[in-house]
Design a protein around this nucleic acid. Structure first.
Lengths: 206, 206
DNA sequence: GTCTATAACGAGATAGAC
DNA sequence: GTCTATCTCGTTATAGAC
């Protein structure tokens, strides 16, 4: 994978611009011309760095997944309880939404059937990695007592990803991060029975 | 809005074909040529019925919202407890996913920023109507005792829509309705304390 | 590494015959 | 209501000069 030249004016690279466009407009909603004009170069120059749109898309997912993985590692290194780490996980999503973006792979999941094979595979791997990380976190939380849930950690992990991705999806048209935060709070409250983050917790067992 | 001529061969109308294409590929992932070729007519003939793609898209959301509203009304007419109606609501999503489709408005929510103004407004109205319906259902359920939740019915409604839309979004790449059902079960279990409607139930799956 | 120029194609849309 | 034919534009991608 080729290195990108830095853009002196804004510091934005090709990948930065393309990533933002995909996250806001979708992979089928942007063009080489869009990226090139923002960077102040020509489409031909773009093709020098990424021979095809599929290759650019592939590089986007790879970088996104890599950074996301780094963020998860960073969360892991702390010695906070699992519940705090779950909140940090949700905050990753919030940060994306604050930028008026959709999760890159959430967006690509919507367009999934139109994507090149290689991109499809990498999108799935992104989610698999998320599930695996969450599963470990949930099992840790069960042990340290900071997280409670019924059923398997696998199912709970799917619940968490589904809810956060969906909350981003439906909050974005309203340009209202509070909607997302409200849902994220309820979600986390389900996993932290003491319910400090929610008012009037429901009494399950005395 | 013009009436559509029935297609003798399959019974599929223009709206049927276009709807399926949008739900599986996105609004920016299909063309007039795609629809026309499936119907066995020309693009020009399509333009007779829908002068622009924006108009076609508008008609798609209108019909989808209308049918969804009918389904909600149909759920409402029964005298089952609210918890049963909530399960019926989730099953509406499941039916869409079984067809390997995304919720039409969930898909359009992803592409939101690229949509014509009128379509944007109608997508938002679809979600508003869903929230309003769920809010009423939740409050009814609180009264009849079949549903329990903390916080406002409004927040709970957003939680439900977020989770179901997100579960569809992330389950589709895996072509695995069981993933969706697992999440939907956990979601409904949160709202039904006795949990009788939940455990390991595989509704109508061969 | 970036440019101009252009190829090759597909998109949305229209005109006018039947 | 559907057709053929065409227009215009945007898209991905390449060739070759600098």
């Amino acid at each position: 994978m080729k290195r990108q030249p830095e853009q002196a004016e804004t510091g934005s690279t090709t990948l930065d611009v393309a990533e933002r466009l995909v996250q806001s407009r979708g992979f089928n909603g942007f063009s080489y011309a869009d990226v090139a004009s923002e960077l102040g170069i020509t489409k031909a120059a773009l093709h020098y760095h990424f021979r095809s749109k599929a290759e650019l898309g592939q590089a986007l997912i790879a970088r996104y997944a890599s950074r996301f993985g780094d963020a998860l590692e960073s969360i892991d290194t702390g010695d906070e309880p699992a519940s705090t780490k779950l909140q940090a996980y949700a905050d990753l999503y919030l940060g994306v939404l604050r930028d008026e973006r959709m999760c890159l792979c959430g967006m690509l999941a919507a367009e999934y059937s139109t994507l090149p094979d290689r991109m499809q595979q990498t999108v799935v791997r992104f989610f698999d990695d998320n599930y695996a990380w969450l599963q470990r976190l949930l099992e840790t939380g069960r042990v340290d007592g900071s997280l409670q849930f019924t059923g398997t950690a696998e199912a709970a992990a799917q619940m968490i990803v589904s809810t956060l991705e969906g909350a981003m999806l439906v909050a974005r048209p309203y340009r209202d991060t509070a909607r997302f935060q409200s849902v994220a709070s309820l979600l986390i409250a389900e996993f932290t029975r003491d319910g400090r983050s929610v008012p009037r917790r429901r009494a399950r067992e005395p």
